[in-house]
């Protein structure tokens, strides 16, 4: 079974791209399935089902969605194998832009849209930076110049990935994408594999359910902003704070 992790900001077109792409694989006689990860609610599972795609959904609820993803991903892979799938896709939104579900030796896809602004590629961090394949959507409604500027910004952040333009509504580019998803290694398990980036440092009192505001209630991993620092200087929490996953690379 081929396993593909798809991530991307909310509303970038992940679900539409996945549905259009899997349609081509289905037409070629392959069995396809999706595991959809979200936070509080999603109807996308019904959308997948309506399109004849086997689907399971996971709602992180009170947990950090990315921690929830990584704690469940092996079970998802085993579900896909038990269903006899040829291609399994996991879909998750990189909600705080700090995380990515991408796993070493598993095809990593990031979906990002032309309308999100030229600053976005730089902002969304590891889910774009650690991707093997970048899908740029919504190209049909912006100018050629904006598409070129946006693609150049994406290239500036990720120098290695293959870049494809796909339209989630018309499906333009989705056939091409489907051929890429059947390339590469089969995945029998992700047990023992490593995330490409470590998850964010957490565990402060708010992680544990604290709702009151004020220094007295803040414990654990807490950091204060430096409001003395004028705009234009290097701000807190920049890319230098990333700790690449594993640490043995």
């Amino acid at each position: 079974m081929r396993f593909v992790t798809v991530s991307g900001p909310p509303s970038s077109g992940k679900t539409a791209v996945i549905i259009k792409t899997l349609e081509h694989l289905k037409a070629a006689g392959r069995k396809v399935g999706v595991v959809k990860f979200d936070c509080l609610s999603t109807d996308d599972d019904e959308l997948y089902q309506k399109n004849g795609i086997a689907v399971r959904k996971g709602l992180a609820g009170a947990l950090c969605p990315d921690h929830y993803f990584v704690s469940n991903v092996e079970e998802c892979v085993q579900w896909g194998l038990a269903e006899g799938l040829d291609v399994l896709v996991s879909e998750s939104a990189g909600l705080c832009n700090r995380c990515s579900p991408h796993i070493r030796e598993v095809m990593a896809v990031c979906v990002i849209d032309n309308l999100s602004g030229t600053g976005t590629p730089k902002k969304i961090g590891p889910m774009l930076k650690a991707a093997d394949l970048i899908i740029i959507t919504k190209g049909d409604i912006v100018s050629q110049a904006e598409r070129e500027v946006f693609a150049a910004r994406v290239r500036g952040v990720n120098t290695k990935a293959r870049i494809l333009h796909v339209n989630g509504i018309t499906g333009q580019g989705s056939f091409e994408l489907s051929t890429v998803w059947t390339e590469g290694e089969e995945t029998a398990t992700v047990e023992g594999k490593r995330l490409r980036f470590s998850m964010p440092a957490a565990l402060c009192s708010y992680c544990l359910g604290e709702t009151r505001i004020g220094s007295d209630f803040q414990m654990g991993n807490v950091r204060k902003m430096d409001l003395e620092m004028p705009t234009g200087t290097k701000t807190d929490g920049g890319p230098q704070d990333f700790t690449p996953g594993g640490g043995d690379s």
Binding site: G139, D140, V142, S143, Q144, E148, A151, L164
Partner: peptide
């Protein structure tokens, strides 16, 4: 196929709009 630097086709259609908040010069 995969390098945006080598895209064979540029597209122009009536549905396309400018979305950036810039002047013509800046754009």
């Amino acid at each position: 196929r995969f390098d945006s630097e080598y895209k064979l086709v540029a597209q122009l259609s009536q549905n396309m709009n400018f979305v950036m908040d810039l002047t013509v010069q800046e754009f």
